[in-house]
Design a protein around this nucleic acid. Structure first.
Lengths: 135, 135
DNA sequence: TCCTAGATGCAATTCATTCGCATCTGGATA
DNA sequence: TATCCAGATGCGAATGAATTGCATCTAGGA
């Protein structure tokens, strides 16, 4: 993914293409799985300040560029917001993998009726197991 | 729920029935929904030290008495481990409600085959929406 | 090229959670 | 029932992710 495409992505959501934003978005696109702020920062050679990474990720999330994934104990993970999908986590080593399984479409409607909520917009689904390497 | 029953629950999982454990378990059973450590402590009149609450909840979790629910931003919630169920969270006010919807039984098997994991033991499923009051 | 709203870096802060350690106590034993 | 001690608790200090205040810098339009 070259810089121009990344700058176009930023322009598409009305964000100034700062050096830091380009670097961070590139990192998120290249590492196509959920990453902690620490890993992201390391991946960019510690060039960005931690506070900047947090603020930028928040901005990206508001613009729909990234998704925040709360899987790990005590630290948030972020991934580029491609198509809707879920994850499976190894309870031994913590490795995270995408899965393409999702809920039957009818479920959110069922939940809405059963819960009495005015509407149901999203869901999060994670599986936990043991990966081959750890088994 | 009287103290004797609670002491029996503790004995059933080989835990000493201390004043603190009885109080905490009682609180968890009476408030039948996920609670933060802060709410739990308040609910017991701030009688227990925070560190004790954390340590006791960890112990309860190991023994299968409580389940830790990671829903809120930056703070864990705990609920008495009754039967397997999921939650729906209001994205406006944060209220959490149980839902009895679950995945079709076949899904974990599908995930196992698709992911290449050695086994799939658990899953977490949360819905997000807007409750009637906030709509 | 100039100008400024917005972005960044740095340091200090917040806040949930954990830990070290001295003291206390449940419950088994004599 | 009195004694004893492994395990539990309280307190305070420490940790670590995340946030914030503020001075400085810069992207990008004028």
């Amino acid at each position: 993914m070259n810089s121009e495409k990344i700058r176009a992505l930023l322009a598409g959501v009305d964000l100034r293409a700062t050096t830091q934003r380009v670097a961070l978005l590139k990192e998120l696109l290249e590492q196509a799985h959920p990453l902690s702020v620490e890993k992201l920062t390391q991946g960019m050679g510690n060039a960005l300040d931690t506070a900047t990474v947090y603020r930028t990720l928040d901005t990206f999330e508001e613009k729909g560029l990234v998704r925040k994934v709360e899987l790990a104990q005590g630290r948030a993970l972020y991934e580029h917001a491609g198509e809707h999908h879920h994850h499976i986590v190894c309870t031994e080593c913590g490795v995270i993998q995408d899965v393409d399984v999702c809920l039957p479409k009818s479920v959110q409607g069922t939940v809405q009726r059963a819960s009495g909520f005015a509407n149901v917009n999203e869901h999060a689904l994670e599986f936990f197991g043991v990966c081959k390497k750890c088994a």
